[in-house]
């Protein structure tokens, strides 16, 4: 009996020591293969001069020093701020208003089905492939034969029929507008789900006290769904900093670099200019910026949640 008993004990012992670690192995391996190794390779390339084939030549920090004085690099990061406005600030603000309107007003007056249909319609641009929707927008915005200018000219607004994506003055605002269209459904869906969670008694009490709609929004809705607002802002900011496909399809970073963004700049350096090291350096800087912004935002969220719980 004794050996069997001791065997059982050792199996249990091993299990207790090893715990659930083996179950993490596939995930860890994937993480290493998909994240760690490419990141390390990218970091290494960023310290080299390399044309994509042959031997990379180690040049230390030279790529980074060159970046610091490259105006395109600074323009691309300045445009990143515009992307944050178009992907985070505007859609979150409008999304909040629309979600509250659908939920409070449309949902109550016309029934939840109408609100769901509207929500789905606003979410549609998120489902359509970016490239397909982007190409449609380039047709609509084509200056000579595009839909928008044709309509404007037909109603006599010729002076408003601008060269939307071709003029450096209008290209960035135009791209931003298209991005708002792309993005708007995401906050609406998240916020409408969040509103389901808010205790209706809070609103009823406020209504009885005579609080107008906007005050209820400010005093109840926003504080109650704050975690969702954080999530939307954080994920939106990260995707804004990394935005690539819409730029690729709409403008190719032009005209005259006016809509270039870091990811597109990195791509052109890497692939079309065959300056792999330089492209890798841009990618590394971008990754660090994203990481930093995400960390700051998460810290901010944690602190504000802590303050809330202390209240």
């Amino acid at each position: 009996m004794a050996p069997v008993k001791s065997g059982r004990r050792s199996a249990a012992y091993i299990r207790s020591r090893v715990g659930y670690w083996p179950y993490l192995v596939p995930g860890v391996l994937l993480f290493i293969a998909v994240i760690v190794v490419p990141f390390a390779m990218n970091l290494y390339f960023s310290f080299t001069s390399w044309r994509g084939i042959g031997e990379p030549e180690w040049i230390g920090l030279e790529n980074y020093l060159e970046l610091a004085s490259d105006s395109t690099f600074w323009i691309s990061f300045r445009n990143s701020i515009a992307m944050v406005v178009a992907i985070v600030v505007i859609p979150t603000a409008i999304g909040l208003l629309l979600a509250a309107t659908f939920f409070d007003f449309i949902g109550r007056r016309f029934g939840p089905r109408v609100a769901s249909v509207l929500r789905a319609l606003y979410y549609l641009p998120q489902v359509v492939p970016v490239v397909a929707a982007g190409l449609l927008w380039t047709w609509i915005l084509q200056p000579q034969t595009g839909g928008l200018n044709t309509v404007l000219r037909a109603v006599g607004l010729d002076s408003l029929a601008l060269n939307w994506l071709g003029d450096p003055e209008t290209a960035l605002p135009t791209v931003m507008s298209v991005l708002v269209w792309f993005q708007i459904g995401y906050p609406i869906v998240v916020f409408m789900a969040a509103l389901e969670r808010v205790d209706p008694e809070l609103y009823e009490a406020a209504e009885m006290d005579g609080a107008p709609w906007f005050t209820r929004m400010r005093a109840i809705t926003i504080p109650q769904i704050r975690p969702e607002i954080f999530v939307v802002t954080l994920t939106g900011t990260i995707s804004a900093l990394q935005v690539f496909a819409p730029i690729y399809v709409l403008t190719g970073g032009g005209p005259e670099n006016s809509t270039n963004v870091p990811s597109y700049f990195s791509y052109t350096s890497f692939f079309t200019r065959a300056q792999v090291g330089y492209g890798a350096a841009i990618a590394t800087v971008l990754a660090l910026v994203v990481l930093l912004v995400a960390l700051v935002m998460i810290r901010f969220q944690a602190r504000s949640e802590k303050e809330d719980s202390e209240l």
Binding site: R51, G166, D167, P168, G252, G253, G254, P255, E256, N257, T268, S269, T272, R273, A274, Q275
Partner: peptide
């Protein structure tokens, strides 16, 4: 030059737009 295509595009966009 690799990537000169993009440079030429940007350059003549400036002339078409008369911005440079």
């Amino acid at each position: 030059v690799p990537g000169y295509f993009e440079d030429l595009v940007a350059a003549f966009q400036s002339l078409i737009n008369q911005s440079k």
